[in-house]
Write a protein that binds this DNA or RNA. Structure first.
Length: 490
RNA sequence: CGGGGCGUAGCACAGCCUGGUAGUGCGCACGGUUUGGGACCGUGAGGCCGCAAGUUCGAAUCUUGCCGCCCCGACCA
């Protein structure tokens, strides 16, 4: 194994794949397009889950669980939805195997054919709204604010670990409301939760916006999203929140009696983020030395490495380190004291850098004599020697400083790669460099499609805060009232 | 589904063209010397050479078929 990672500037996707592999986050599995998430990677995902779940609970949601399988007849009910997902469904047709009568191994038992095929959920609107029919009778039953953590399957033609896998983990919120206003408000609230999480936990600045009709979720009336920029200037959709109108209520015949004793269909939302966020985390912050983790998501926030020659030296160092470890733990900092003797300190330094541990403390004989400790920051790759006194407080401060710095760095990068463009030539040139382009669009699907064909750039979103501004469409010159965000995307 | 690449030790690969004792590096085990940014020496363990059929006295190597994975496109969170 070569020591150095590939460089971002030379081969971005190879760099990404190597980080995933070498930082022990995940690996490809024996099953095409499906990944194995390894313990270190899963620990990060668990931190994301915890952070998000707390936010869902704080906004009044409860967790529940629905089946992995969706009867085909359910998926068919909402027509647009069915059409959107039909091309990427895994289908269960049989429920039994038997010994192969003509040779070794097992075969599918033809006698065990299912009367109706079961679809492995690509998303759960259908199975959930079928259940909601039984849950909702009166306006008093609303709103229903439910979330589920689950795995789903979308049979993608081409997969990339974390960014697009055939099976992935996510959460999907599914809510039902008595009024349209309330449902829209919920859709926007959850977009806000996602943006908050992205910015304050992943340290990833995002653009809040809504999708053009062409990019909308199949079956939604409006799709809101958060979009982030990766270090190659490409966009990654990090979360979506859909206003579903009454489409699913109608398709599944869900009705409630309002206060005036009239029958109505409830209004729906759904919203989700997935293990793709792991990909966002990696691609947004990491460098040519490896992963860079924001402290809030780092499974190990501080690693302490002893530098010693003899077991006696180590014992002396450990005596000084132990109380520091205790104090850091008491302060809520997750810390690892790596006193293993199978690797040398230099090896450990490189290893924890690769794994993105935000702060490294190193303590050797020289420090013992001087009453100091070496503090190294992963985000800036700087080191300094500090007095032992007050080190716990200093580390605590560093946690928030690093969190803020990583965010600022990503925000600066995005700013430097975002341009307002008004001519087609500049558009074509800039998009090639990797950038977000704020440009006018005439609002038609034809133009959107033409731009995509010519440049591979898509409309990432129409920003919620886009000011009204008269202009001319970047391609057709037709009138436009605001700028939208164009970029190439993952 | 189209184009390209690759399947040989835990990992990365050489050997294949020109058939004849299965190799190198890393990792692993043990011993020693080392230790402030990925140490070194010695000894050792570890292989149905992706699967199947064929050619041959003999196949990792030649032929055919199959399977799998990765990368680039079309599709997508």
């Amino acid at each position: 194994m070569s020591k150095a990672l590939p460089k971002r500037s030379e081969n971005y996707s190879e760099w990404y794949n190597e980080i995933v592999k070498r930082a022990d986050l995940a690996e490809n599995s024996a099953v095409r397009g499906c990944m194995v998430i390894k313990p270190y990677g899963f620990a990060i995902w668990e931190k994301m889950q915890r952070g998000l779940d707390d936010m869902f609970k704080a906004t009044g949601h409860q967790n529940a669980y629905f089946p992995l399988f969706v009867p085909k007849s359910f998926l068919e009910k909402e027509e647009e939805h069915a059409e959107g997902f039909a091309k990427e469904c895994a289908v269960v047709t049989h429920y039994r195997l038997k010994k192969n009568p003509d040779g070794p191994g097992l075969i599918v038992d033809p006698a065990a054919k299912l009367e109706e095929e079961l679809i492995v959920r690509p998303t759960s609107e259908a199975i959930i709204w079928n259940a909601y029919r039984g849950w909702i009778q009166s306006w008093r039953d609303l709103p229903i604010l439910v979330n589920q953590w689950a795995n789903i399957v979308r049979w993608e033609m081409r997969t990339r670990i974390f960014l697009r896998t055939a099976e992935f983990l996510w959460q999907e919120g599914h809510t039902a409301h008595a009024t349209k206003e309330e449902a829209v408000e919920e859709t926007e609230r959850m977009l806000g939760v996602y943006a908050d999480f992205a910015e304050n936990w992943i340290a990833l600045p995002v653009i809040r916006g809504y999708k053009s009709p062409a990019e909308r979720f199949a079956g939604a009336e409006e799709t809101y999203c958060i979009e982030a920029m990766m270090q190659d200037g490409k966009a990654l959709q990090c979360g979506t929140s859909h206003f579903l109108g009454q489409n699913f209520a109608k398709a599944f015949d869900v009705k409630f009696v309002n206060k005036e004793n009239e029958l109505e269909h409830p209004w729906a939302t759904s919203w989700g983020v997935s293990t793709r966020l792991m990909g966002a985390l990696i691609m947004a912050h990491s460098d040519d030395n490896g992963l860079v983790l924001p402290p809030k998501l780092a499974p190990i926030q501080v690693v302490i490495v002893p530098i010693h020659r003899s077991p006696e030296d180590l014992a002396e160092i450990t005596a000084v380190v132990d109380p520091i470890v205790e104090k850091l733990k008491a302060a809520g900092v997750s810390v690892k004291y790596d006193d293993s003797d199978n690797q040398r300190s230099g090896w450990k330094f490189a290893e924890y850098e690769l794994k993105g541990v935000p702060v490294r403390l190193a303590l050797g004989k020289r420090d013992l004599e001087a009453g100091t400790i070496e503090v190294a920051r992963r985000d800036t790759l700087t080191k300094e020697s500090r007095p032992l006194e007050g080190i716990v407080e200093h580390v605590q401060e560093l946690m928030s400083e690093i969190q803020a710095n990583i965010y600022a760095k990503a925000a600066k990068f995005r700013e430097e790669h975002t341009f307002r463009v008004d001519t087609w030539d500049e558009f074509v040139e800039r998009i090639e460099e990797g950038a977000f382009l704020l440009a006018h669009w005439d609002g038609t699907a034809e133009t959107e499609e033409n731009i995509k064909e010519q440049t591979k750039a898509t409309i990432r979103c129409i920003p919620l805060d886009a000011p009204h501004e008269e202009g001319k469409c970047i391609l057709t010159g037709n009138p436009s009232h605001r700028r939208v965000v164009f970029a190439r995307a993952y």
